[in-house]
């Protein structure tokens, strides 16, 4: 990476949905250039954490410390997008140029060619004019990766990047992730496949609303930690009172 990759620091971060904490008092840091998997049961607050880092969800308490000008590339969960939207593949990818060209300026030919190259890099050469409605789930995911490639952000957040894609697509996309890691970008990915995490991701954050473990993947994913995560995620107090932990920290 030509530009410096900033560090992401979380300080006592609590993010809520309707006062229920989805991420609860999380403190820690993502080192520049680190490759971290965020793992945890459904409803553990993984997506919420990514959205908070991307600035899409305001924390209830605590904060995400990140330079204001830091650019973040976000791969949303695929289900969040309307795949029947009448738009061509190349146009989706070109939205990755937004930070470079903004809302109004026309796209120079060189950048247009880079969009085509990005498509080719994810195995979608020749798909420029195809409407996204005609793509398979895997091809659509490839197109979104191409958009990220073009965005060229120092920090990349991936929300379940390999869900609903076949093994071959996952392998191709994983190669892109490795390339980002090799270029020194910070990559944070929400994942469910623990074998994949053990194989490819040096760092892991195990989350179950509460942080269970955060560190080298082998230790974080120990059997004891995984059991604790499951128990925490299933605990749901109907009549939970207000949390006082923040006060204790402040005192």
């Amino acid at each position: 990476m030509a530009t410096a990759v900033p560090e992401i620091r979380l300080r006592d971060l609590t993010v809520c949905h309707a006062r229920r904490p989805a991420v609860h008092h999380l403190t820690g840091r993502f080192a520049p250039g680190s490759l971290t998997a965020v793992v945890g049961p459904n409803g553990a607050g993984k997506t919420t954490l990514l959205r908070a880092i991307a600035g899409l969800h305001r924390p209830e308490e605590g904060r995400v410390e990140l330079p204001r000008e830091a650019r973040i590339g976000l791969l949303p969960q695929q289900a969040a997008l309307d795949r029947r939207f009448p738009i061509a593949c190349l146009d989706v990818v070109m939205f990755g140029l937004w930070p470079a060209v903004g809302p109004f300026r026309r796209v120079p030919r060189a950048l247009r060619e880079r969009a085509s190259e990005a498509l080719a890099a994810v195995g979608l050469a020749g798909f420029e004019a195809r409407p996204v409605g005609s793509l398979s789930a895997g091809q659509f995911q490839r197109a979104l990766f191409a958009r990220l490639l073009l965005e060229d952000a120092p920090i990349i957040l991936l929300d379940e990047p390999f869900n609903a894609v076949d093994a071959r697509t996952a392998a191709d996309l994983l190669r892109v992730v490795r390339r980002w890691h090799g270029e020194g970008r910070t990559v944070i990915a929400v994942l469910h496949d623990l074998d994949l995490v053990r194989r490819e991701f040096p760092e892991t954050l195990l989350l179950a609303r509460e942080p269970i473990a955060w560190g080298p993947t082998g230790e974080a994913l120990s059997a004891a930690n995984r059991l604790r995560a499951r128990m925490m995620a299933e605990a749901w107090a109907e009549e939970a009172g207000a949390c006082t932990r923040g006060d204790a920290v402040a005192a």
């Binding site: 991307a54 899409l56 930070p99 809302p103």
Partner: peptide
Amino acid sequence: AFAWRPLVLECFDPDFARAVGA
């Protein structure tokens, strides 16, 4: 004509639009 690009992006992927500061 002027706001075509932001409007299409806002329609297609509002989260992405916010993440890139659109």
